[in-house]
Design a protein around this nucleic acid. Structure first.
Lengths: 222, 222, 222, 222
DNA sequence: AATGAATGAGCATTCATTCAT
DNA sequence: AATGAATGAATGCTCATTCAT
């Protein structure tokens, strides 16, 4: 390898090509930068992360950063979109797995949501959106678009289907979905976001998820 | 303790911050500084606010800042505690006003919570806590202590009382309180925090509050 | 020699710069670069013009610049020589057009000189020579060689001829030529060079030119 | 002395106070910076001079520069105005010294002008004005205001006086003044500005000055 | 207490130039 | 000949903090 900072060539024929890529190792630099930037942005936020730090962690020169991204804000946005897309992709799959009965399905859905939302990276992304809402208003759009929006659509569709099947009585399925998402954030997610001490064990997650499911059924039982 | 740059012994993370005051206008200076600092911190966050900016807005010299506060982090903490205390004081009054029937009381409580939480300053404080959770972990304690904690106690007490009166069937009043608080944040509060467009009219607040109350009653009706 | 970063032997400071040309559109690239470089150098000066800018304006890659020119200084010199040669060529033609009487001829000569010297590009070249006199001392030689030198020779020859014809009494024709050139720069040229507001209308040019001619005749009338 | 970089206290009760000055050594820092900046700007021009260089030469920290001047452009402007004012002050005194006869006076005036204009610093200031005419258009105004304008007024007044005394026949004294100034720049000044080799000996200056005087008299003799 | 000049480390960004492709 | 990613030094400037007055 002629490139000193890159230990292994990527052989996968399928790769994301967000950046023009002539040689075979061009995308690696870009990914490397994005990965390092992400690590730092998530940990320290936008302002506390310097371009020098990113360059150093990525093992490239400071000038290289500017060959791939116009400026710090651009790099930040690129990182955020990429992470939002790849990270939250799984959220939309909530409720996909078929379950014998509705209650079990709801518990599983709530449980999945909680688990996903207290994931280190999801917390970081949320933190960033809230922190930089004034400076980078479009981050919220991105997070909403790739994150909540899809989850909500998925849940809405699901509830509508159950409504038609007579298993639930949901007049405003969209609001119900939003409410379900919100109720799932009670205690564990909420406190985790504030870095407050909280029991995040699977047992506790399941306990909260069960309560959410039960309460949801009480509200929307036909 | 949790403050990064100042190892000084703080006997309690939450305490009333009083600056020695000899002359008659000494507190003026201090207040002036805190007010200006608050304005800027809430608007731009910790990192983006410089001591020079604060000094300029407060109309004092840069050096003066350091006569009243050890450093930037100390000033920041002082501002945050003062604002949390004075601002969120009202939150604890939720549910105080007596109402003819329970549903109306719940609607009013939810409505008050929503209105308080989407207030410009409350949003700013929340933003700051989330943004600086890594660097200033004690901010969350402060916010919790002065904010949610009291509201939750108040609600818990209320629900317990209603339970004993046979008007509700609440086994875990603390969880119910937390859930009520969370449900109240559906849609309006949640989206406002992300700076997403949302209808914040009194009518819509009331609509959401009513839904919260109805659903809460469905869950906890005896 | 006089070039700061390039020690390469130049047999003469002034020489025709020809770049090897194999294909048919090779000179195109070179010209394109020189044209774009010129545009930028004249507008912004040497330091403020970056190689990236030049490459972008010329529509070539940054690397290409270095295939045609050793470095920035070399490109700058090449541009300056080419422009000096092609631009100031016309200056030598001053006094060529035959006129019925001497006064008319002098007026026309002064008028031509003024018009040429306040031309946008001539001003730019002068500006550059003066600005970079320390860093690129040979620019002055080039400008002198292609510009003033020829004009002065032409004028000197002309005055000598008139002297021999008894129409003028010029003992030091070279000094007279230099003086004529200098007097022609009174007011209009001088102020234009400093970007000061000045009336550059043909009428005013003619007025100044007439004054120059009349005064010149008063000095050197036989 | 408490200040390490300042070897001697200024005791003079009269001093230029362009910058607020509470202590006794505050103005020194400012002067020190201006002096160093001037030295570098005159030598290398605006773009090639860096703030670091200035700070280093002045013996102050880079940050200090920004306590006294808003930015590089501001420092540059301050330097230029101060130099223009103090330097060219003497120019207005041209023609002040009484002389037995007009010719001698004219020679002396021309000689003074030439000597002043080929002074190292005057050349530098002129160079800077021409070089930065696009970026800093107000420099020309400053130079004109403090330099040529006053000289021209002085000469104009002088010529008018001689005209009224019947010693000259000058209809447009202002133009005559401008012409006298321009003629004085023939050869020596002109070439010096372009860094071209030229004989700058007092004898040669006197020779040119005499020619200027004689020719001027031929033009404007009554 | 109050001031504001001084500091020097750090910031984002640009630059001319190189070199493997 | 042409490309454009890579480099690392240098740029103008800001920052929290100190300290003599």
């Amino acid at each position: 390898m002629t490139q000193p900072t890159k230990p292994a060539p990527k052989t996968s024929p399928i790769q994301h090509r967000l950046v023009p890529n002539k040689g075979k190792n061009a995308p690696r630099k870009c990914e490397q930068i994005l990965t390092s930037a992400g690590q730092l942005f998530l940990q320290q936020g936008y302002e506390r992360t310097s371009m020098s730090q990113i360059a150093q962690l990525a093992g490239v020169s400071k000038g290289s950063l500017y060959n791939h991204f116009e400026n710090k804000a651009d790099l930040f946005t690129a990182f955020f979109e990429e992470r939002s897309r790849t990270r939250l992709d799984t959220l939309k799959a909530v409720s996909r797995t078929p379950q014998p009965d509705l209650r079990t399905a709801l518990i599983q859905a709530a449980s999945t949501i909680i688990t996903l939302l207290i994931d280190h990276e999801a917390i970081g992304l949320y933190r960033i959106v809230v922190a930089e809402a004034n400076e980078f208003p479009h981050l919220a759009d991105t997070l909403w678009h790739y994150g909540f929006s899809r989850t909500l659509s998925s849940l809405t569709e699901w509830f509508t289907h159950k409504h038609e099947a007579g298993l639930l009585k949901v007049d405003d399925a969209a609001f119900a979905a939003e409410q379900f998402l919100m109720m799932s954030q009670t205690r564990i997610v909420q406190r985790t976001r504030l870095s407050l001490p909280v029991d995040r064990s699977p047992e506790n997650i399941n306990r909260v998820a069960s309560a959410v499911a039960d309460h949801f059924l009480k509200i929307y039982a036909p």
